[in-house]
């Protein structure tokens, strides 16, 4: 367990020294969602209708964008190889990396969601549900993404390929997340959709690090 924290600490420290890179997916998320009023309509009542889809597709794309940086640097300088050889469970080390990655790229999306929501005409009563959904959903996206990033290690222009592999697998997250958001906006209870998102997250927490570890072992050869 302590190695998970070691990795977490290391990745957060590294991110702290390279803040600009870390903020890119967040900036992307904000810009994309704010382009919709310009491309569609400034009417808040109409924007409110498409807000769930906009928020979740943008979150999905931002996670895909962030994927590329998950293993890239560690693969390039040989650190990933040392992880494989560390004698510690690789799945645990990669889990630590994924948690750090989520804290840096997934959680901020949930944090800025209220601001985006205001711009899209979402009532403030809907915010707690939306934040919850984004928190749960982005964990799953980071976990699924770790598998995609592992599989495309060492592939030229692997970022695009990783997205192509990962997006179909992320469909359930999109469906449940958008539904929870929609219900929150309509004033209903998003509990059902949130439970499904939580179930996906638990499944992902259980299986994804193992799959990512297998992928990285193949990738570092």
């Amino acid at each position: 367990m302590s190695v998970v924290f070691t990795i977490l600490q290391r990745d957060l420290l590294l991110a702290w020294r390279r803040t600009a890179q870390v903020l890119q997916p967040l900036a992307f998320f904000i810009v994309v969602t704010l382009l919709f009023p310009l491309g569609y309509t400034p009417e808040l009542a109409q924007l409110r209708q498409i807000a769930p889809g906009v928020l979740w597709v943008a979150a999905l794309l931002a996670s895909m964008l962030a994927l590329e940086s998950l293993f890239r640097d560690d693969a390039a300088d040989g650190t990933l190889e040392q992880f494989v050889l560390s004698g510690q469970p690789l799945a645990a080390l990669l889990f630590g990396k994924t948690v750090a990655h989520w804290l840096l790229t997934g959680l901020p999306l949930a944090v800025v969601a209220p601001l985006i929501g205001v711009a899209l005409g979402v009532p403030s009563a809907a915010m707690p549900g939306i934040i919850c959904a984004l928190c749960l959903g982005t964990v799953s996206l980071s976990l699924i993404g770790a598998i995609g990033a592992g599989l495309t290690l060492g592939v030229r222009r692997g970022g695009v390929l990783a997205s192509l592999l990962t997006l179909p697998l992320a469909v359930p997250v999109l469906v449940f997340g958008a539904r929870a958001t929609e219900l929150s906006i309509a004033g209903g209870s998003p509990a059902g959709a949130l439970y499904l998102l939580a179930a996906l997250m638990v499944l992902g927490l259980t299986l994804a690090p193992l799959a990512a570890a297998a992928a990285v072992r193949i990738g570092v050869e």
Partner: peptide
């Protein structure tokens, strides 16, 4: 696409195989 992107045949075999296995777990959920 994954199979085509990896040059080493043995690595391509195993990486794509892992993807197929991950996929089949996901198919019912999707």
């Amino acid at each position: 696409a994954l199979r085509a992107a990896i040059d080493d045949p043995s690595r391509a075999d195993r990486a794509s195989a892992l993807l197929a296995v991950v996929g089949i777990v996901n198919v019912p959920i999707i």
